[in-house]
Simulated assay, not measured.
Amino acid sequence: MAVPTGTADQAAKPLPAALAVESPADAARGNWVDRRAPAGLRPYLRLARADRPIGSWLLLLPCWWSVALAALMPGIGWSVYAVLLLALFAIGSVAMRGAGCTWNDILDRDIDGRVERTRSRPLPSGQVSVRRAFAFLGLQALAGLLVLACLPPFAMIVAISSLGVVAIYPLMKRVIWIPQLVLGLAFSWGALMGFAALTQSLPASALLLYAGCVSWVIGYDTIYAHQDREDDAIVGVKSSARLFAQNTRPWLVAFYAAAVALIGLALAQAGAGALAYAGLAAFAGHLAWQVWRLDIDDPALCLAVFRSNRDAGLILFAALALQAVFA
């Protein structure tokens, strides 16, 4: 498929109907967007990755960890407001993940058009024009802003501070060999948000949790990047998967071990009890299973192992939430 070369004012040339109804090659066929969404909305839902909710989960989980861990702080506790924050962060994660993916695809549309796995995405395939993509980006950003307006002023400031990192991330694959580090800085911001909203501060436990999340993101996104390793080399895109190559396993051990250690220190700073540490042990076991199971030369397995991080994160959240309830 040709990469669109017109201006943002020109309408995108639509795909043949037989192709337009199917998900891009990097999404599972038969997902809810394919089956249930109105045909006219499908390209926009795919642009926001609504057909692949794993990214929203991975953006949301540090937020939920942060809420549950902040609830353990003296004088905070588990409350109706904490539960409300879980819901607000869920809505915000979907909106901002969609906005981030839209922004990423606007910047990467030429690169995506040269990579087999991404050339059928809405922008490089011509299903959505650049102008309409920008308009859609604005709508998603507005939804995120409405969520932001429900938070205390300090939390709003912390959230807004993340926008610079989010904006530059799509460009980093052209500049540094580990763009996953910048993704980690952006995707882990939620680890600060629960503390910012509940305690109006960023104590040591928040910063340690954030650092642990960054390390976790670098690990799991390295696994994800192995799906595109060969195509990235052809188009000249940098990634930790290309950098680590056959040494990926020991690097994953290092990043995942650092994640567990830093999160463990965050638990200690917050005064967590046995339930929280049991959840961390289960989380660590899941990460160890990922390293053992991984085959970097099997793209389908890389995707499956990457997606399993949602389950690892939910295990840890469940333990932290129970600890907060029974503290």
Rank of each mutant, 00 (worst) to 15 (best):
L145Y: 12
L202F: 09
D51C: 05
L243A: 13
A281E: 00
L84P: 00
D112V: 11
L59C: 05
Y224E: 01
I218P: 02
A276G: 08
G194V: 11
I76M: 06
F244E: 08
D232P: 08
K173I: 02
V3Q: 03
P43T: 05
Q269I: 00
L262R: 10
P124A: 11
V291H: 02
C302I: 09
G77Q: 05
A70T: 00
K13R: 15
G273Y: 01
F134R: 13
L262T: 07
L192Y: 11
S205R: 04
G30I: 10
V158P: 00
A318L: 12
S125T: 09
W177A: 13
R117F: 04
S162Y: 01
V80R: 13
G144L: 04
P203L: 11
V21M: 11
P53E: 09
V115G: 05
A143P: 07
G113I: 12
S161T: 07
P62W: 05
A270C: 07
M172A: 03
A71C: 14
I111Q: 07
I106G: 04
A2E: 15
V291I: 14
G100N: 06
V80W: 11
G98Q: 02
R293D: 14
A17F: 11
V260K: 08
A191D: 03
R97G: 03
M172Q: 08
V235R: 10
S93R: 02
A321C: 10
E22L: 15
L45A: 12
D26H: 15
G113S: 12
L15K: 07
Y256F: 15
L19D: 15
T248R: 06
A282T: 06
S205H: 08
R42N: 04
D231N: 13
A167N: 06
V147M: 13
A143V: 15
L252H: 05
Q269E: 14
D311S: 13
A87V: 15
R229A: 14
R119Q: 13
W251R: 14
R52A: 12
A197D: 07
S161F: 03
G77W: 05
V130T: 15
V260R: 06
T7V: 08
L72Y: 07
L84M: 14
R229W: 08
H226M: 01
T5L: 10
E116F: 10
V175R: 11
G77S: 11
N31G: 14
A68T: 01
P250R: 08
L41V: 04
L202T: 05
K238Y: 12
P14W: 03
G92Y: 01
V182E: 00
G6V: 02
L301Q: 12
V158W: 00
S93H: 00
I218W: 01
P152F: 05
A284V: 05
G75L: 09
F244A: 11
I178W: 11
A225P: 03
L41K: 06
Y220H: 10
A18D: 15
L171A: 13
L198P: 04
M96Y: 08
G264H: 03
A12D: 07
T118W: 07
L60G: 02
L15T: 02
G190E: 06
L198E: 06
I223Q: 08
L202A: 10
A155S: 12
A319W: 07
V147N: 10
